[in-house]
Amino acid sequence: MGDILAKYNLFAAFWMTIKLSALGAVGALLLGTLLAVMRVSPVTTLRAIGTSYVNVVRNTPLTLLMVFSILGATFTLGLSFSDQATTNAFIWACIIIAVYHAAFVCEALRSGFNTVPQGQAEAARSIGLTFAQSLSQVILPQAFRGAVAPLGSTLIALIKNSTVAAAIGVADAAGLMKTISENETGTLGVFGLFAIGFVILTLPLGLWFTSLSRRLAVKR
């Protein structure tokens, strides 16, 4: 195992996984929040768009979306971010991870919305806050606090799902694992090494989110 660590740059590969996950997570949080707001908005059309998005994206395999971003979007539709294939693949991978997990962020937040009593919105409107102000000052902050635990699960799933980016050639942990098992023969040791790497990434996050959800819980 020592020679594998010496021969391959595991750190660079996991750093790529972290970058991919971080950018994907930020995108997913923004888009997911927007979708959640659409799904609870009083406008029927927005609600319908939000619902359709979640149902379509959530039920599409991530690998399919990932491959489509290159085969479909880049090659057929010409939506390319860079002439360099690796740069283009990285940007698309971040976008696809964000787009895919936004559906899950939306659902996590919606469960958070359900923890906010109706009276909170009525009180907000009663003091003259607009819909946007009620949302940003009263409803969303409480919804986020109520959704910390499911959002944490979504983030952990996102980190693990980011390995799918190897399917379009992003040099992340999963890509390096393929390289190593191609060269050094696939052994449980190599898989174990990468499994440990992901546990190191996700386990502290899980613990942190658990304590965060306890600390941020809104007392009623």
């Binding site: 085969l71 294939a85 693949a89 190897a166 399917a167 379009i168 390289t179």
Partner: peptide, 30 residues
Amino acid sequence: TGSTSAQKVKKDIPDVNLQEFGTYSECVAA
């Protein structure tokens, strides 16, 4: 991704513009 062939072109052609996929079928489609 990760295949011996991919590694070899990366090594032999330093600034190669390489798109990697999970399977060869996707490369053929591309």
